[in-house]
């Protein structure tokens, strides 16, 4: 039992981080039926933004959130409003291709500016732990990831439930024509929704940058995590995203503990396949 305490605690905490990585993608799929293949790269853009702002202004990564989050809103608003909205229509393929293009452009842009070197957002939190027992420590950075992840998802949930903007986003995803008849400028709403999704991706990017190393090409790796979370939890459901994050992270870390570190990713995908086989709509999914 003692062997499993640490991976379980780490898995739960990492689940919060996985959830915040995925929430933006899940939201956009739920609203515009857009599979945002650039989600991971946009998130990593957030990491690099934080890196540059932190170095330039001499502030810690968490302080850079104050700038990264608003900048990412405008990045999202621009990507949706000026690129994706143009190809929005009945078919799914054109937006998919545009998102793929954005992904390639971003990766190479980051490569040009930052070189392919490994980076990380320096913080003292990364090495601190809270000792619980002789065999169990809570890594402070993981705890922070989980707390911020849960907080962001809660804020998003409240935004979607309680505000005109949130209701308009949900209404537009339910019936676009009816939403327009209520006075909703749906194109504008989609751009705002993407802006909000990218705010969450910006937070995720900073957290990932503080927790792990990142490169200009790390984006797709997190896109796959986001996919996993969304498939396990069910699309467009906030509860599902949290649950999906937990399950994916736990199965990865427990798998690594049981079969060895080489099996970490493998175990995550096995659970993903099991969910797909047993409940293809995801645990909390309806469609």
């Amino acid at each position: 039992m003692e062997d499993f305490a640490q991976p379980i605690v780490n898995g739960i905490l990492l689940g919060g981080l996985y959830a915040i990585i995925a929430i933006g993608m899940s939201t956009m799929f739920g609203i515009v039926k857009l599979v945002n293949l650039a989600h991971g790269d946009l998130m990593i853009l957030g990491s690099f933004l934080s890196l540059s702002l932190g170095t330039w202004m001499g502030i810690g990564p968490l302080w850079t959130l104050l700038l990264v989050v608003p900048i990412m809103y405008f990045v999202g608003f621009f990507v949706q409003g000026f690129l994706l909205n143009r190809v929005l229509g009945k078919e799914m393929e054109p937006p998919l291709l545009v998102a793929f293009g954005v992904s390639i452009i971003l990766q190479n842009l980051l490569l040009m500016i930052y070189t392919p070197d490994a980076r990380s957002l320096m913080t003292d939190l990364a090495v601190k732990t809270i000792p619980i027992t002789s065999y169990l420590n809570i890594p402070v950075i993981y705890l922070l990831d989980a707390l911020i992840g849960v907080a962001v998802i809660t804020i998003l949930y409240l935004l979607f439930q309680r505000t005109y903007l949130g209701r308009a986003i949900r209404a537009a995803s339910d019936d676009e024509v009816a939403a327009r008849l209520m006075g909703v400028n749906t194109r504008n709403i989609y751009a705002k929704a993407m802006g909000i999704a990218m705010m969450s991706a910006g937070v995720a990017g900073v957290l990932v940058g503080m927790t792990f190393t990142f490169y200009p090409h790390t984006g797709p790796q997190y896109l796959i995590i986001a996919f996993g979370v969304v498939v396990i939890g069910g699309l467009g459901s906030m509860k599902g995203t949290l649950a999906g994050g937990l399950i994916l992270a736990l199965s990865q870390l427990l798998g690594a503990q049981i079969f060895g570190p080489g099996y970490q990713l493998f175990c995550g995908y096995v659970v993903l396949l099991i969910v797909l086989a047993v409940r293809p709509q995801g645990i909390f999914g309806t469609v």
């Binding site: 209701r167 949900r170 019936d175 024509v177 209520m182 006075g183």
Partner: peptide
Amino acid sequence: VAEGISLVPEGRRVFTRLTVNENLVMGSYV
């Protein structure tokens, strides 16, 4: 809609995944 014309569309088109009150509140979006 902002000018004051409201359409009750053919086939009703209520927001099925919103509650009744949320549907009504959407009506006061302008």
